[in-house]
Amino acid sequence: MAVLPELGLVRSGDLDEVLAAVDYDHAPYAGGTELVPAMGLGLRRPAAIVDLKRVEALKGIEVDADAGTVTIGAAVTHRRLSDHPVVREHLPTLAAAASRVGNARVRSTGTVGGNLCFAEPRSDLGCVLLALGATAEVRSARGARILSIDELIVGAFETSLEPDEILTTVAVPFEPPGMSYWKLQSYERPTLGVALVVTESQWEVTVGAATERPTRAVIVAGDTAGLAAFVDGLELSDDMTGPPDYKRSVLRGYLERALGTTR
């Protein structure tokens, strides 16, 4: 059986204390669904983990009706996200996507923040949150920054977080009408995810899982050439879930059906 390396623990209920502790050797830790296996495999070797789960400020789900946003704490689990009435009312596509992440154990322990900050490309939430135009609040002892999801996730397993920063909350505008999320998942993790926001005037298409990071395009409704150019221009991954040609074909086929552009 695999064994974890020697590890220290910083635990506090106070956000400032937590922020004071986080650095390159002191890794933020919440659900552990990504970090613990990564430490077991020797891919991450922090001296200590900094537990975020006891910081109440990171566990809220709050609605601001005036602003039309739901603010979600980074330490909120997928399960809580998918079951929360506010999320189900204002962000039903996000709630549904969260209800299908991993398995029931991963959903019980894994968190929104962990999912975004690990930046595993084969993931759902980044794609859906980018499509929703969510923003992330990132904090360190030095202060706070607000980033778009695009600015936060900059590559495969790569975020723009500094070693002393943590993601604290994600502010998500209420879901617009005409939104959907579809994924192809033949393996443990998704092969391809597509979030759509379709209005009379435009198609917003966000592609995830098959790309290094979620990628969004806004296309004038009916502009099939523009849509094709976007699909053809995507850099799709080549891995065991399939070669780029395959993923592009599945994506093209899905978009044709979903947007009613079948030739």
Binding site: L184, S186, T191, T241, G242, Y246, V250
Partner: peptide, 11 residues
């Protein structure tokens, strides 16, 4: 016969 392999057969 993984999905990409079957897709390739279809093509």
């Amino acid at each position: 016969l993984t999905p990409p392999r079957v897709w390739s057969l279809l093509h």
